[in-house]
Nucleic acid binder design. Structure first.
Length: 468
DNA sequence: GTTAGGG
DNA sequence: CCCTAAC
């Protein structure tokens, strides 16, 4: 942008009586310091299970901020180069995002605009957002206020610093985007801050409110400022969201007779089971994150690879995901209570646990296995264990049938189980034959009779395999 | 309530 | 993963 454009833009802003005087204050140094105090509301701990008080990750799709060791007294804890600071996709972090009810409050002390007023401060305090507290950006030269990637998350990409040292604001055009995002008198808040500019975005727009990212752009406001048109991106996303919502409403209203594929009635008892109040941070959840459970922990692009493209709902969950269970709840709410359970890939650790469980309790004791080994995995029901074991048996048989491993890989190109696991399944299958295979399980009998090792007491319990 | 088995 | 019959 050249000088003339900047000036004209500035004047247009001025004409619109938006108090952006501080905009043209020259940045004075390259230092950007982000510091603050963060803590979580107790209610939201479950949604932020990975995060600690003094260490958190504002991971976004485009960039990450990792704030560690932030405390109230150390204002320089996060002294970094401007290009390292990007409060981007603030609301999309998987730790904190499903924020149907969270409000963001941020006021600008002394009317300072973000990054453009020397020695002024941007103060962001969340009252109901999972991250509760405040952080400050002690500005010296945040010259680049980017709103281009703003996906109607109020903080996404609206604050960023660049490493290029410049004595003049470079991105007034971006500020224009930014101001469009924030300054809208049509969205006047019921909330005023004591000191200067105050913005209160919120997203309570009715029972269909999903807490998805789009919602955060629905309503936002600024006191005593003229209204501005919402960004094109906001318009686009709003229309997409409403389209999805109306589609879901159609599906819901069409009743259960048609039974559209992929959307089924969820039994109430399942609802109760699947959604316990206390959300646990289990070892295998973290394992999931580490290994292969696709949709929560990975970047959205990767997630989308693992999700069938037809499942729009799933992709929404990806973006709004906080904890797994929250996502499920959100989707259930969105679809008026009818939603197929999430498809969660079984991790190797889960399979191992299942195998251990079968080894200990025998086939068919799915409830026991669930209670003892999968108590922390609330999304795995006894039926799931049974189904998985059945599939494992299939897989092991396939492996036995075609010794060539390539065939096996071709049959399961997406997630080949380790051969050792399948061998173990086969071994257990011979010891604890699946009920249906009981008829032709003479081999297993002979194996057991030959003292084929099973060191578990469960073997005695299993009446399907006669001992001695 | 739990499990097996078909879809 | 869902549904349902059977136990």
């Amino acid at each position: 942008m050249n000088q003339a454009e900047e000036e004209s833009l500035y004047h247009s802003l001025e004409e619109e009586a938006i108090d952006v005087d501080c905009l043209l204050v020259e940045p004075r140094s390259d230092q950007v310091s982000v510091s603050g105090v963060w803590c979580y509301e107790e209610d939201n701990l479950g949604k932020c299970n990975k995060t600690e008080n003094d260490s958190f990750d504002l991971g976004g799709r485009a960039s990450n901020i990792n704030m560690e060791g932030v405390d109230a007294t150390n204002l320089n804890a996060l002294d970094v180069l401007p290009h390292e600071v990007g409060v981007e996709n603030f609301l999309t972090t998987s730790n904190v995002s499903p924020c149907d009810d969270y409000l963001l409050d941020f006021g600008f002390d002394h009317g300072a605009c973000i990054g453009y007023a020397s020695n002024e401060r941007l103060h962001v305090g969340n009252s109901q957002f999972p991250i509760k507290g405040s952080f400050e950006i002690k500005n010296s030269s945040m010259e680049n206020i980017s709103g281009t990637e703003c996906q109607n998350y109020f903080l996404s990409n609206c604050i960023s610093g660049t490493s290029t040292n410049s004595s003049e604001p470079k991105s007034l055009d971006r500020f224009d985007d930014f101001s469009k995002s924030f300054i809208n008198q049509d969205m006047l808040p019921p909330h005023f801050s004591h000191n200067g500019l105050d913005i209160t975005p919120f997203c309570k727009d009715g029972p269909t409110s999903t807490g998805s990212a789009q919602d955060h752009g629905e309503v936002g406001a600024v006191t005593h400022k003229r209204s501005r048109k919402p960004t094109q991106r906001y318009i686009d996303e709003s229309s997409i969201l409403s389209m999805i919502n109306s589609k879901k409403r159609r599906e819901a209203s069409s009743g259960c007779k048609g039974k559209p594929p992929g959307v089924r009635r969820v039994k109430s008892k399942n609802e109760v089971k699947v959604k316990p109040k206390n959300k646990m941070v289990s070892s295998d959840v973290s394992f999931d994150k580490a290994i292969q459970v696709p949709f929560i922990s990975q970047a959205p692009t990767e997630c989308q690879k693992s999700v069938p493209p037809a499942k729009i709902e799933s992709r929404i969950e990806i973006y709004s995901s906080g904890s797994e269970d929250d996502s499920e709840e959100i989707m259930r709410n969105m679809t008026s209570g009818s939603q197929r359970k999430l498809h969660r890939l079984w991790t190797v650790s889960e399979v191992k646990k299942l195998i251990d469980g079968v080894a200990h309790f025998g086939v068919g004791k799915w409830t026991h296995i669930k209670k003892l080994l999968f108590s922390s995995s609330i999304h795995r029901t006894p039926v799931d264990l049974k189904d998985k074991w059945r599939n494992l048996l299939k897989a092991s048989r396939a492996l036995k049938g075609s010794r060539i491993e390539e065939d096996h890989k071709r049959s399961q190109p997406w997630r080949p189980l380790p051969k050792s696991i399948l061998c173990r399944v086969r071994e257990l299958a011979s010891v604890y034959p699946y009920p249906r295979e009981n008829n032709n399980s003479k081999i297993s009998k002979s194996k057991v009779a030959l003292g084929h090792h099973v060191s578990s007491p469960a073997r005695i319990k299993s009446n399907k395999v006669p001992v001695s």
